[in-house]
């Protein structure tokens, strides 16, 4: 890269590998780091290294965690009978923020995505089935995203786990709280009508 010293260029080349970071942003971030306090830069570098060393995939729920098994899997106040299946660790965090769920989790680490060549072997489905084999789990709540891929994954997991004697439910879809029927799209309104409840 013309006019950019090699050490800086190295940083830019590494940053540009991150999702959503183009060359311009990478250059801006790299220049920012040259002006930053040495302790801050060391803190960033060390935290990146320790993240790789201290982060585990929980052998029970397959979420990223600081210990194995993770904090949520070890919590004795949580029910072992209900498991919420989510796509990614970020979804687990979102459900957890709602405060409305006191069971366990299972992170699939993705969804079936044929356009990317991702199939069931690439997801943590075997681990889920193995987990259900213990007989403790009575209900599975599938909380994958309401996208075509999320729906297909939900159906795949449901078909695989129902024969194991587990009740399988799907999180509700439809209008968001504070939403407006007039502005709802076809798919959302269709789902909302389909999933209506008696009052």
């Amino acid at each position: 890269m013309a006019g950019v010293p090699v050490p800086l260029e190295r940083v830019i080349n590494e940053l540009v590998k991150l999702p959503g970071i183009g060359e311009k942003t990478a250059t801006r971030l790299a220049f920012h780091l040259t002006r930053a306090d040495r302790n801050d830069v060391e803190g960033l570098a060390n935290s990146l290294l320790s993240m790789r060393e201290e982060l585990y995939t929980c052998s029970v729920c397959c979420a990223l965690a600081g210990a194995d098994p993770c904090e949520l899997c070890c919590d004795p106040r949580r029910s072992d009978e209900i498991v919420c299946v989510v796509e990614e660790a970020a979804d687990l965090a979102a459900v957890e923020r709602s405060g409305g769920f006191q069971g366990r989790y299972h992170v699939l680490q993705g969804t079936l995505s044929p356009l990317d060549g991702i199939g069931p072997d690439d997801l943590r489905i075997t681990e889920l089935v193995r987990r259900l084999g213990s007989g403790t789990v009575r209900e599975l709540i599938i909380a994958t995203n309401p996208t075509a891929e999320g729906e297909a994954t939900a159906l795949y997991v449901a078909n695989l786990t129902k024969p194991l004697g587990v009740t399988v439910s799907r999180i509700a879809h439809g209008l968001p709280m504070g939403g407006d029927v007039e502005y709802a799209d076809l798919a959302t309104l269709g789902k909302a009508l389909e999933g209506r409840r008696e009052m």
Partner: peptide, 19 residues
């Protein structure tokens, strides 16, 4: 804007063939 939307979820195999 969506022109049509199915409320029936596509099963995994149909999704894969659609892809």
């Amino acid at each position: 804007e969506l022109l049509s939307a199915s409320t029936t979820p596509m099963d995994p195999e149909r999704l894969a063939y659609g892809a």
